[in-house]
Design a protein around this nucleic acid. Structure first.
Lengths: 153, 153
DNA sequence: TTTGTCTTGCAAGTTTGTTGCGTTTGTAGA
DNA sequence: TCTACAAACGCAACAAACTTGCAAGACAAA
């Protein structure tokens, strides 16, 4: 059902976008490409390997990618700011987050686009965009909660 | 069209919810009640009157209201964290924000509820909630932009 | 009015995000 | 392959937003 996760050639991707190729940048791009969910700057720094580059470099490089429109900044429901690589096909998705274990699942279905069009027509807005996050309690956490209640006797 | 904005009796509201009544709390509750849009902690502190109470008091009181479910925390599109009073009737709305002048308009129509139900059924999540923000360029800013381009000759 | 608890202001401490500067490195051209 | 220079880097300091401990003060029940 899901298509093969395209293992992006980070160096080529950087050159295509007119950016210099360095070890840190390759690590950051690879990480963003492989992550199914948006990451905070600190997560990027830690997961790309703190030795790979300085935190300031992560900050500056990710900011640069955002200015170029290659990365999208997302205001996460928990108050953190996260970042995700933009796909070339303009397709985007939203997230379903468990309020208990904070597991994140992508949601492909997007019902907001029609609303966007309606609002643009009604109120005269242009260049519409949107951000949607759903939260709930996942089945696993529901079970765990139920078990805990029983065991509490 | 819009119904009369109910001027909440802040002191009574606090007592109803089992909270002590103090000057600072009344000022904060009144402000949150009268604001059409969610506010940051610093906005609450400034607009409720910086003399009314300390910033730490705003932080602690708003956090307490969130724990009690009386205030909702919202991750705003610009990266700030904002807070709004929850209405008793469970009705909520979303926001339309101009990316140029940052004007905020509430959007009552909610198309996400059906999606929530579908996802809850498909993936077994419970206690669903969601956060949606729309951004675009408002008509006024479009005109201003057009005028600027013309004047630039 | 008294008393105990809750709330507050102050000030210090975290975390996250941002910038300046001198050094190092990638890349184009010789 | 070598050279030169702009771009990128690490370091360290800084700024803003958020969080907490503690002693003093205010609210509310009796």
């Amino acid at each position: 059902m899901d298509k093969a996760p395209s293992p992006l050639d980070a160096a080529a991707w950087l050159r295509t976008n007119g950016l210099r190729v360095t070890g840190g940048r390759v690590a950051i791009v690879r990480l963003l490409d492989s992550s199914r969910v948006p990451l905070t700057l600190h997560q990027i720094h830690a997961q790309a390997g703190a030795h790979a580059c300085d935190f300031a470099t992560v900050f500056r490089f990710v900011t640069m990618l955002e200015e170029k429109g290659l990365v999208e900044k997302v205001a996460w429901a928990d108050g953190t700011t996260r970042h995700e690589l933009r796909t070339g096909d303009g397709h985007h998705h939203h997230y379903l987050i468990c309020r208990t274990c904070h597991k994140v699942e992508p949601v492909d279905d997007c019902v907001v686009e029609r609303l966007e069009e309606e609002i643009a027509a009604e109120r005269g807005y242009t260049a519409m965009n949107h951000s949607l996050q759903l939260t709930g309690v996942c089945p696993t956490c529901q079970k765990a909660r139920g078990a805990k209640k029983k065991k509490a006797r």
